[in-house]
Structures are given as C-alpha cells and as structure tokens.
Design a protein around this nucleic acid. Structure first.
Length: 489
DNA sequence: TGAAATGTTGGGGCG
DNA sequence: ACGCCCCAACATTTC
C-alpha cells in the first residue's frame, strides 16, 4: 500500500479537484490543498463549451486540449487515481459529482477571463446551495491582480513600471513537486470518453503535422523548459527575434493550458542565472516576456472588454475596411509578401508562429490592409495552439496602437525590410514559401522587384506560381497614416 | 519590440 | 590651394 494512503485520514470528507486551465500536477496549489485535506480526491475536468461563449477554445487549442487531457489522465492514473471527464455546464456537473461522491469541498485554480469569472461565480452559487464549499487558489499568475497596483492604487497601464514593480518585489518560492499518489474513492463516478468530445479534427486532418512539433502535457512542458534553460538561454537575447532559428522557449502552449506554472519557470530561470554567475541578458529578457503574459492578464482582468473593444476610445471611430478577399489572402498566406505568407503558413501547419513574425503579419493586416484587429485576433484564436484570451487581445491591441502602452499607430512595419533584417539568410521564407525558394537572397523578400531574367531562372512566374502583392506597401502606409490623422483630433 | 523624410557632416573628385 | 558639388554615412525629426 502506498505510503500516502496510510497517512491519510479515512474519515475525512471527499474532495473534488476541478481542473480548469491548470492541467498539471506539480506546483498546483489547489490539488495540493485537496490532497492535504486528507480524504479521497476525485480529479475532474469539465468541458463547459457554452460558458466561454464566443471565446470557447479554437480548433488548434482543442487539438492541444485533447492531447493535454490525455497526458494528464495518464499521469493521474500512474498515481492510482482517475481523471473524470464531464461535458456540460460546470455548475451542474460539479454539483452532480459532489452529490454522487459525497464530496463536501471542490478545489480549483483561479482563471482571469471574464467568462471564467462568471463561470466560477455560478459554480460557487450552485455549490453553496448544496452546502458544498468551493476553494479557489492562485497559481496561473506570479502575482494576483489584487496584489499589485501603482502608487495611486490604480492598475498598471504601462509595462515598464509593471515589470519594475513585479521584478523588484517578487521572489518565487520553491515550487511544489507533483504529489506522489492520493486516495481514490471507493466507487468512481461515470466519466465521458475523451474521444467522444471530438476535440481533434478528422476529415480533413489539418493538424496532422502538429504532433511532430509539440509534446503537449506536463512532462513535455518540463522538458521544454529544461532544454531552453540549458541551451538557448544565453542566446535568447540575441536570437529571439530570428524566426529562422530555434531561439525562443516555445513554452507558450504549455503555459496557456497550465501544464507548467509561471512560478516554476521563474524559479528555474533565476536558479540558472545564479548557477551561471553571469547571464548575458538572456534569461532576464526571457523573464520579461513571461511578465508580458502577466501584464496582459492584469489588463484583461481590469478591462474585461479588451478582446472586443479598443482600450483607447479614439480608435472606436477608426475607418477600418471590410475586405473579405484580402482577409482571406492574409489567412491563407497569399499576400505576395514572402515573410507575411511564411508566417501565416507556419501558423496553419504548426499551430504556432514566431513572435517577431506575429508582429509583422499583424502590422500588415491592421495597417497595410486596414482590416480590424479583431479579425486577426479571431483567426489567431482559432489557429494558435497557445491561444490565450488575454495575451491575444492585448497583443493585437498593442500592434493596432489602440491598447494600453501600445506601439504608436504610425509604427508601421515594412514587410520587406523586416524580412531582410530578421530572416537574413532567407531560411525561414524558403522553408514556408517554397515557390520563391530559388530566388537569390537579394530578391527573396521582394520577388515583385526582381527582373524578368532573375524570375525566370528561379522558376517564379508572378501571378501564376506566386501571387503579386495584394497591396503596394508604400501607398498602403500612406493611406494608414492618413486614417490615423483623421482620428487624432 | 519602426520607417521614411529630412538634416548634417565629411571625404573625395574635379575644375 | 581652393571652392564646389556629390553622396554616403550617420543623426534627427516626423509620422
């Protein structure tokens, strides 16, 4: 008999561990508290599709969710327990399960999305009615929204002071290791089969390539972190803007599903800095990115309509264009600008896009095409395995210039020079836009500037094998600047 | 976590 | 030797 079973109190009441976006066993305060209560613990995941409304998980996120739940279920099974799956309204499913298991307490980790806050409230109300307690824990953030404010007591609206305040006051306590095992109930409540939820595509299986890029689940997350800290951390400051290199951590989808806690990342990065003695800015820069995620969630918490409405009021009257053909060209990676098309195709094939390229394609959609940022946000929501409501909304608003602490509207990326700067050898474009791969470096980022002989030699026929640019950047830029002038006054 | 237009400087060709 | 022009290189300003 496992050690922990002997030490538990068989008389203690049963508890439900309600997994949400914290699909991990290590450093999970809610799970730890449920186990420490000493009774039987029933781990549950509720797929509450309706609660999130228009922000229910996108298709790529569902693919990941399936894999992650499968991984979590097997991690739990290894500890002598079972992950119970239920689909439906969380308050009903949890109340039903609590009754069936004689549970008196439900444990969960806090979420920050407006719909999730409402969901938690309805769960709490329903459980209270039945005499059951909902105990909620932090862990999705380094610092809870209530614990950080400006000197005026206001939420931070500018990143740099936010970073300063957080990094000066925050120290990560040693993360809690995964519990070894815990007491199973005498009888198990019924569970759905994961496959019934049809979270993954079948015909056509557009996600066929995903599994060669990713290892969803807690073990995959921890491995990714170790690999990054060991090898890439030094070069991160230098290479993180290079989509042709593997310079970034690629932890975002793991973080988005809570397979790893931000505290564990912070703790591990700080430990590595200490062990190294000198850090060439790599890990510090990396932690700043982690804090951008943190900042976005704080913004969303204080501005719940961030995913829908511009943070800056004046952008409500911006003369956005509706252009379905252009939007479609952007989504499918057929804009005629190789770096943009490369990014959009990487996104479609792998469920992920390098951050530098995200900025380039977003700038192109918003400024060159003047299509509403919400259209880009929606596409990313559906296609990113790391889709996170707060990061997605805050980042799109950042590029649009409508967000808090946003890039000024007139900061318009030139897709050609960005390509030349950050994909200097063209490896990234050649990988994702093979139609132009045989062009020399000098024309790779601008096939439309190449002379007839060069094009012929590279086997490129503009308008046939590769599209002509759907807009002229120079004039699109002028149009965007004019539109900006119009809303300035 | 830009880019383009405009301004400045300094070297070199040239009459 | 000198002034003039050109223009690359860099800096500053503007959007």
């Amino acid at each position: 008999m496992p050690r922990s079973r002997q030490s538990t109190n068989p008389g203690a009441c049963a508890a439900i561990m309600w997994f949400r976006s914290d699909l991990r066993l290590a450093d999970n305060a809610a799970l730890r508290a449920a186990i420490n209560a000493g009774g039987r613990v029933i781990p549950v995941y509720v797929f509450d599709d309706d609660a999130a409304g228009v922000w229910s998980p996108g298709a790529a996120s569902r693919w990941w969710l399936h894999e992650s739940l499968s991984s979590l279920a097997s991690d739990i099974a290894q500890r002598g327990s079972r992950l119970i799956l239920r689909r439906g309204a969380a308050h009903q499913e949890l109340a039903g399960l609590a009754a069936a298991c004689n549970a008196t307490t439900v444990y969960c980790t806090r979420r920050y999305e407006p719909w999730a806050i409402a969901q938690e409230a309805s769960v709490r109300a329903q459980l209270e009615k039945n005499g059951i307690v909902l105990k909620r824990f932090g862990g999705g953030l380094l610092v809870e929204p209530e614990q950080i404010a400006t000197k005026q007591g206001e939420p931070y609206k500018v990143y740099t002071p936010f970073w300063r305040a957080l990094s000066q006051s925050y120290t990560a306590a040693r993360p809690d290791p995964a519990p070894k095992d815990w007491l199973a109930p005498a009888t198990w409540p019924t569970s759905d089969q994961l496959a019934e939820w049809r979270l993954q595509p079948s015909r056509p299986n557009w996600a066929h390539e995903f599994s060669s890029h990713w290892s969803p689940g807690e073990a995959g997350a921890l491995q990714r972190l170790e690999t990054f800290v060991a090898s890439a951390a030094d070069s991160y400051a230098k290479d993180r803007d290079r989509p042709d290199l593997q310079g970034t951590s690629r932890l975002s989808p793991h973080l988005a599903h809570g397979e790893i806690s931000p505290r564990l990342i912070w703790y591990r990065a700080r430990a590595a800095q200490g062990a190294r003695g000198s850090d060439f800015g790599g890990l510090e820069t990396f932690l700043k990115e982690l804090v951008w995620r943190e900042f976005s969630r704080h913004l969303l918490f204080h501005a719940p309509n961030l995913p829908e409405q511009p943070f800056r009021q004046e952008f409500a009257s911006f003369p956005w264009q509706q252009d379905d053909a252009a939007l479609k060209a952007w989504r499918s990676g057929r804009t005629g600008y190789p770096i943009v098309d490369a990014g959009m195709r990487e996104l479609w094939s792998t469920g992920w896009m390098h951050n530098r390229v995200r900025m380039i394609v977003a700038s192109f959609l918003i400024k060159d095409l003047m299509i509403p940022w919400q259209d880009g946000e929606r596409w990313f929501w559906d296609t990113l395995v790391d889709a996170d409501l707060a990061s997605n909304a805050a980042s799109w608003q950042w590029v649009a210039g409508s967000g808090a602490d946003a890039a000024p509207y007139f900061r318009i990326f030139n897709p050609v020079t960005q390509g030349e700067k950050f994909d200097p050898n063209g490896d990234y474009v050649r990988r994702w836009v093979p139609e132009v791969a045989n062009l020399p470096d000098s024309f790779l980022q601008k096939p439309f500037c190449a002379d007839a002989a060069t094009l012929r030699e590279a086997g490129v026929r503009l308008g046939e094998t590769y599209v002509r640019p759907i807009v002229d950047h120079a004039s699109a830029r002028q149009a965007a600047l004019q539109a900006y002038q119009a809303i300035r006054s």
